[in-house]
Structures are given as structure tokens and as C-alpha cells.
Amino acid sequence: MPGPSHTGMVEKRGAGHWLSHAGLILGVLIIAFPIWLAFVASTVTNQEIVQPPMPLWPGDRFYENYSNALVSGINAPVARMLMNSAVMALGIALGKILISLLSAFAIVYFRFPGRRLFFWLIFLTLMLPVEVRIVPTYEVAANLNLLNSYSGLIFPLIASATATFLFRQFFMTVPDELAEAARVDGARPMRFFWDILVPMSRTNMAALFVILFIYGWNQYLWPLLITTDPSMNTIVMGIKQMFPSGDDYADWPVIMATSILAMLPPVIVVITMQKLFIRGLVDTEK
């Protein structure tokens, strides 16, 4: 946030000031336009869309189109796809936080044979996005019978170490006196972990949760490969499947209602948890 030093002598209120506002408002409008258009399309009839130009102001079919999408959808009810996405995003976010907390605790607070090796093995995984090892990962999932399952959607995507790294950095900053005191008191390591370390990591966990939730919700390629059964589709990957394959007209109002529903949860998370979101972004990119 701009502090008092911000109000210097350089920028006086004047033409430049209003020009800045005008430029920013124009930017916001242009950036928001695709979403406005999608929203309008989700409130009109398909007839109004397929005879261009479509209206630029919402119509009166909001309830009809959205309930149509949620209840019946095109290949599967969108309500079902929303639930699949929620399970996947929550599973990835919570699962990754849990396993990373545990392994970071082990790496930072214990000395055991092979510790360095584990650390470097985990470090290596920072470098490889799932897109790069897609075919063999798919084969593994298929061999383990994970196609069309929540485990198949979740586990392959928590196999990376960004979060472990983050918690390691944070644990390093925790004063040694705390662990010392716990040891003197005869507290077991797990007691120290749950009673002291986890509560202290709350903000980090929350910031990471926001980032991981969005990451999980917005996955596309992996669900596309691993869910062949429409009832297991996630909403983000399911939209493309709603387009007809031939030359038919797409059911635009339902597709656009689904698009709006698909972006709503992560957008709400970003806006309501803006501070945590920004913190998470800065943390994970360090």
C-alpha cells in the first residue's frame, strides 16, 4: 500500500491524474469484457446468439439456462462436474499441504541417514511439470486402476515439492529456543509438531491453500486424459466436451453458463482472500 511518502511533489492532481484513472478504467473494462460477454450469453436464448450480433445486455433466461446446465448439462450435469472439481481441488490443496508439512518437519528437525539425498530428490521434482511426463504418468495411473477415480485426479498432481520447500524455509526461521524448550520439557517430537509448529504455520498454510486450490481447480490436461467417463469430468475440462463434434450449432447459453460457473469458485477465493492470495503468490515464486 502507498505510504505517506507516496504523496510527494511529483504527481499533482491534474490532467495526468484523471488520465491515469481513465486509462485504468479502460483497461479494467477491456479485461472484463470477455467475462461480461459470457455472462450475457448465459442469460439469453441460443436463437439470439446464433443470429449475430448477439445482445450486449443480459436477457431474462438466467434461471432457465443455469438450472438447465446444473441439472442436466450436456454430457453430465454441471452440478456433478462442480463437485468433481471441488473434490479434486480440495484433495490436491489439503493433501499437498499435509504431506509437505510432514516431510519438511522430518528434513528440518531430524538428523538421519540419507537426509541430504531425500532433500535433493525432493528438490528435483520442482523442475518437472506434469505436462512434460504426461504419457508415462498416464500409463502408471492406468496400471494402478486409477482412471476415472478421484485418487487418479489427485495423487499425480501432488507429486511436487514446492510446498515442502516453502515449509522448510519457514521452519528454518522458527526460533531454536522453542524446540529446545519442548525437548527440555520432555515433549515428544510429534507433540512439538502439532502444538507449536502447525499453529505457527497457519498463515503459510492458508496462503498456500489459496494458490493450490486455484491450481487444482484449473487443471485441464490431466483430467482430460484420466476421466473418460463424463460423470467424472471436472468442470474446467468438461466445457470443451460440450461442443458438438460436427457442424451443429453449440448450445452456447448452457456452455457459457458452465464457463461462468467454472470460474466462480476460484475467482471468489482470489477476491475474498486477496491478502493471502498475494502472499501465496510471492511465497511460491521465491
Partner: peptide, 20 residues
């Protein structure tokens, strides 16, 4: 204990990362 703590991450990383 630290080995057990590392186990979940090691298994997931081995199966879905290093092996592929």
C-alpha cells in the same frame, strides 16, 4: 520417525514422478 514422516511424500513422488 522422520522416515515415516517422509514416507507419504516419497511414495507419491516415486510412483507419480520419478518412475514416469
Amino acid at each position: 520417525l522422520p522416515m515415516l514422516l517422509l514416507l507419504p511424500q516419497v511414495i507419491i513422488t516415486a510412483v507419480f514422478f520419478f518412475y514416469p
